[in-house]
Amino acid sequence: MKLEKAVSKNKNRVDELMRVTRWWISGLKDEYAVDRFLKFYFAYEMLVAIKKYKKGKKYEEFRKMYLDNFYYLDIYCKHKGYENIDDIIDKCPQDKKGGRISIRWVRNSLVHEKSGEKDLAEKLAVCSADEFGLKVLGAIKKIIYEEIGLSFD
Score class of each variant (00 low, 15 high):
residue 7 V to E: 11
residue 8 S to N: 14
residue 8 S to P: 09
residue 8 S to V: 13
residue 10 N to V: 15
residue 11 K to N: 08
residue 14 V to R: 14
residue 14 V to C: 14
residue 15 D to E: 09
residue 16 E to T: 08
residue 16 E to V: 08
residue 20 V to Y: 06
residue 20 V to S: 04
residue 24 W to T: 03
residue 26 S to H: 06
residue 28 L to A: 15
residue 28 L to C: 14
residue 28 L to D: 09
residue 29 K to S: 07
residue 36 R to K: 15
residue 38 L to V: 07
residue 40 F to A: 00
residue 42 F to D: 09
residue 44 Y to A: 01
residue 45 E to T: 11
residue 48 V to Q: 13
residue 48 V to R: 15
residue 49 A to H: 13
residue 51 K to D: 15
residue 54 K to R: 13
residue 55 K to D: 07
residue 55 K to E: 10
residue 55 K to N: 08
residue 57 K to T: 12
residue 58 K to A: 14
residue 60 E to V: 11
residue 61 E to W: 05
residue 62 F to C: 10
residue 63 R to S: 01
residue 63 R to P: 01
residue 64 K to N: 04
residue 65 M to V: 08
residue 67 L to M: 13
residue 67 L to Q: 06
residue 69 N to R: 05
residue 71 Y to E: 07
residue 72 Y to Q: 11
residue 73 L to Q: 04
residue 75 I to Y: 12
residue 75 I to C: 04
residue 76 Y to D: 00
residue 76 Y to P: 00
residue 78 K to I: 01
residue 79 H to P: 05
residue 79 H to Q: 14
residue 83 E to C: 11
residue 84 N to G: 08
residue 87 D to G: 06
residue 87 D to M: 11
residue 88 I to P: 04
residue 88 I to E: 04
residue 89 I to M: 05
residue 89 I to Y: 05
residue 90 D to I: 07
residue 93 P to I: 07
residue 93 P to N: 13
residue 94 Q to G: 05
residue 95 D to Q: 06
residue 96 K to R: 12
residue 97 K to L: 10
residue 97 K to R: 09
residue 98 G to D: 09
residue 98 G to M: 14
residue 99 G to M: 11
residue 100 R to W: 08
residue 100 R to S: 02
residue 100 R to H: 06
residue 101 I to R: 04
residue 103 I to M: 05
residue 103 I to R: 09
residue 106 V to S: 07
residue 107 R to S: 00
residue 112 H to K: 14
residue 113 E to H: 07
residue 114 K to E: 13
residue 114 K to Q: 12
residue 115 S to H: 05
residue 115 S to P: 14
residue 116 G to K: 09
residue 117 E to H: 10
residue 118 K to Q: 04
residue 118 K to L: 01
residue 120 L to V: 03
residue 121 A to V: 01
residue 122 E to N: 02
residue 122 E to V: 02
residue 125 A to V: 00
residue 128 S to F: 00
residue 130 D to E: 10
residue 131 E to L: 01
residue 131 E to H: 03
residue 132 F to M: 05
residue 134 L to W: 05
residue 135 K to P: 01
residue 136 V to E: 02
residue 138 G to M: 05
residue 138 G to V: 03
residue 139 A to S: 11
residue 139 A to P: 04
residue 141 K to V: 11
residue 141 K to T: 09
residue 143 I to S: 12
residue 144 I to W: 13
residue 144 I to V: 15
residue 145 Y to M: 14
residue 147 E to W: 13
residue 147 E to C: 15
residue 148 I to A: 12
residue 148 I to Q: 14
residue 148 I to P: 12
